[in-house]
Design a protein around this nucleic acid. Sequence first.
DNA 1: TTGCTTGTGTTATATTATAACATAACATAA
DNA 2: TTATGTTATGTTATAATATAACACAAGCAA
Lengths: 133, 133
Amino acid sequence: MSRQGQRIQKEILVILRRHLTPRSAYDVLGELRQISPKIAPPTVYRALASLTLRGRVHRLESLNAFIACQCDQHQNASILSICDDCGTVEESVAPDLLKELSSIAAQSGFAPSRHVIEVHGLCASCGTGDSPA
Amino acid sequence: MSRQGQRIQKEILVILRRHLTPRSAYDVLGELRQISPKIAPPTVYRALASLTLRGRVHRLESLNAFIACQCDQHQNASILSICDDCGTVEESVAPDLLKELSSIAAQSGFAPSRHVIEVHGLCASCGTGDSPA
DNA sequence: TTGCTTGTGTTATATTATAACATAACATAA
DNA sequence: TTATGTTATGTTATAATATAACACAAGCAA
């Protein structure tokens, strides 16, 4: 990665951190283009892939969207709780659960390398009858 | 759902069961069209949504693809172990882990309604240096 | 310099998914 | 039975997501 690549990743992090809810790659692209109008999709996808790999950003597989890691960076998989009402995402870490999950998969000789754990539902404010966002 | 809807769902199950690896909605559409050439994407997506809801088919969120439930039907979330080499998918059920996962999400008042648990890695045959599929 | 490797830019297109509206099928009551 | 509402299905078009493939440039080694 060269200077330019780093700059775009930095900008993407800023963009994602401005939002509490996940953004699609094309949402990010749209915001990036306000600064650098000529950026193309592959540039964004490459930067997002790198950020995701390094744990600075999480990809929500069930939403095809991205969110900045709320704790700076998790190398390990997080549990991502997605409110289907207001869209907010909570991150939890649970090393024990990961270990358990790995061992369940390993029962048949499967060798895990990446965990995807997403929980859909309603967050505390949306679930209690409070008016949602 | 009327007769026609049921017929298409039945056909989709047959198609998915012919394969050991996940199929995209458009893969399924292609095979359906060999029988009924005029089927359109929304028809397939609706049928897949219904099958998924009823646990006859699982959607692999991290692959945007579908596979028939290997145990006829799971109402509860399965753990889906995806071999990144040969593409096969193993299903495991682990009610305890689900409960644990729910309670982790619930710590902040989150009310879970759907779990997505996918594990990427290598299956037993691909991980041992055996020639993969 | 030359050639090699790696990263980045660019164009085009592939793949996945759904909005929006039209039509048909079924149920129920007048 | 016809009218009417309701739900499911068909159809068209297009939106949204993602990547292949190649062009170009930067850095480095011989």
